[in-house]
Design a protein around this nucleic acid. Structure first.
Lengths: 114, 114
DNA sequence: CCTCATACATCGACAGTCGATGTATGAAGC
DNA sequence: GCTTCATACATCGACTGTCGATGTATGAGG
C-alpha cells in the first residue's frame, strides 16, 4: 500500500513549481516571485530550496531547461514542463487534494471516534 | 517577518496529534489508529514518527502524560492537552488553513500573473 | 501454552529546508 | 564613468523530521 501523503509534506514545493511552470516557461527567480506574489507573501520560496528542487525535477525528467534572455535582457535559464511533468502535475495535484481533505476530516471532527 | 508555513510542511503531524488529543486523553497507539481510521487509510502515522512527536510536544509543554490502564487492561501512557497545547492547537489550525489557502490559490490559477 | 494484538520505544539512513554566502551582469542615476 | 541596485544563478553546512526496521513486554483468546 502506498503512503504518498507523507512525501507530500515536503513535496509541496515540487507541486508548486510544477504548477507555476504550467502557465508557461519561466526561470527560477520568476517562479519564486510569482508564488510569493500570488499567495500574498504567505509562501516564501527560498532560493536555497528552489534551485535544488528545480535540479531535482530536471533530473527526473519532469522539466527541461534552456538558456535564454529574459525580457530585461539578462541571461537566465528557462524551465518548461515536459509531457511527463504535466502528467506528474496532475497526479500530484490529486494527491495534494486527497491529503488536504484527510487533514480537514481530522480537524473538523469534534467528537472522539468510536 | 514570520515564515511559519514552511514549518507546517513537516509540522502537520503535530497539528494532527494536538487535534486528536482535543477529543480527550489518549495513548499513542490509539492516536495513530484514530487518525488512520478517520482519514480512511489516507494518513498513516508511523510509530517511528509518532512517539518522537509526542515526546517533542511534551517537552514543549503542550501535552502532559500519565501512566494508566487502557480499557483492555494494559499499561499505557495517556497524553492530554495542556492549556498551552490548546492554545497552540488554535494557532496551528489557523496557520494550516492559511497555508492550504495559499497553495490552493496557486493551484487554481490558470493564467500567468502579471 | 502459544500466538496475536496491543503498546511502548529507539535507531540509523535519508531527504529536504533554510539561511548565509558567493558570483556576475545589466540598468539606472548622478 | 562610477556606483549602486535588482536580477539571476548557484552551493554549502547545519538542522530537523520521516521512515522502516527492530526490539521488548504483556494481556487476551484459543
Amino acid at each position: 500500500m502506498p503512503r504518498p501523503p507523507q512525501d507530500l509534506l515536503q513535496g509541496t514545493l515540487d507541486l508548486l513549481v510544477l504548477k507555476t511552470l504550467s502557465w508557461g516557461p519561466a526561470h527560477g527567480y520568476a517562479i519564486a516571485r510569482w508564488i510569493q506574489q500570488l499567495t500574498g507573501q504567505v509562501l516564501d520560496v527560498g532560493e536555497g530550496s528552489l534551485y535544488p528542487a528545480l535540479h531535482r525535477l530536471e533530473e527526473r525528467g519532469l522539466v527541461k531547461s534552456e538558456w535564454q534572455l529574459s525580457p530585461n535582457n539578462r541571461r537566465a535559464k528557462f524551465y518548461q514542463l515536459t509531457t511527463r511533468g504535466r502528467q506528474q502535475l496532475r497526479t500530484e495535484t490529486a494527491t495534494w487534494t486527497e491529503f488536504v481533505d484527510a487533514v480537514g476530516k481530522v480537524l473538523r471532527t469534534t467528537a472522539q471516534p468510536a
